[in-house]
Design a protein around this nucleic acid. Structure first.
Lengths: 126, 126
DNA sequence: CAAACATATGAATAACTGTTCATATATTAT
DNA sequence: ATAATATATGAACAGTTATTCATATGTTTG
């Protein structure tokens, strides 16, 4: 009874009587839970992958580094839109770039990005 | 010259003269590009992972199947909010559930989900 | 230096999203 | 059948986001 009170949800006190509740499981996991900060950063990361245009840009870049105007042609959206989305991808640490003359060459930042894209593509194909 | 015209962006015709453009790369990738439909589904999948509450719910479920009120306690948001988010996760194919009496037990749908979460967590830790 | 090129950026707007509140549905117990 | 429990759902509102348009920045060429 004391245990149940400790786990009681302040907003919905009647839930202390929930029959399905697995008190042991909840107590055990409470410590191991992802922190608010980690959850925030992870969600921000996936947010960067949650737009069709950005996904298409990243799949372009899986083929190798590419300047903005190449991406623009392959993806078929305006220069400004590509640039804005590249900024989002850069801030999320998903792409990097180098300058060569007037052009900026963007590329996939690291292996995690390819892994996430590949896993995502697998997942939707089932 | 003919090649360049074929690749010309209708909205920004001046870009046919872009010096940085790698025509061979663009031509080669144009066929292998992810389709609009695939890009849409992939982005929808990641959209389901792009919210802090949903990420926290999924990390709960990595510890094992759990009923809604357990999730509610661990994540600390209202019953309605949990339920709405579980719906989103279900529609994205990220979780499944089974009924046992009055309770619904949710769990991670498949290995892809764990992989994506783990990769995401790795990525932000660097 | 001026012009052209490649890309970035700020503001504005339309569309979308997450939560809350109220209520509905489904299951079990009395 | 009625009440209680566990969860789902619809509407509404505030906050967020992607695109467009106009303009700015940085680089090369003449």
């Amino acid at each position: 009874m004391t245990d149940e009170k400790e786990l009681m949800c302040s907003e919905c006190p009647h839930h202390v009587e929930c029959g399905g509740k697995n008190i042991e499981l909840v107590k055990r996991l409470a410590d191991k839970m992802i922190t608010e900060e980690e959850a925030y950063f992870v969600s921000e990361l996936f947010k960067a992958l949650s737009d069709m245009t950005r996904v298409r840009i990243l799949f372009c870049l899986l083929g190798g580094e590419m300047c903005v105007c190449d991406i623009q042609e392959l993806v078929g959206v305006s220069q400004s839109a590509v640039s804005h989305q590249l900024r989002t991808l850069k801030q999320a640490g998903l792409v990097k770039y180098r300058r060569e003359g007037k052009s900026l060459y963007y590329s996939i930042a690291d292996g995690h990005v390819s892994t996430m894209l590949a896993t995502g593509l697998e997942h939707i194909s089932e």
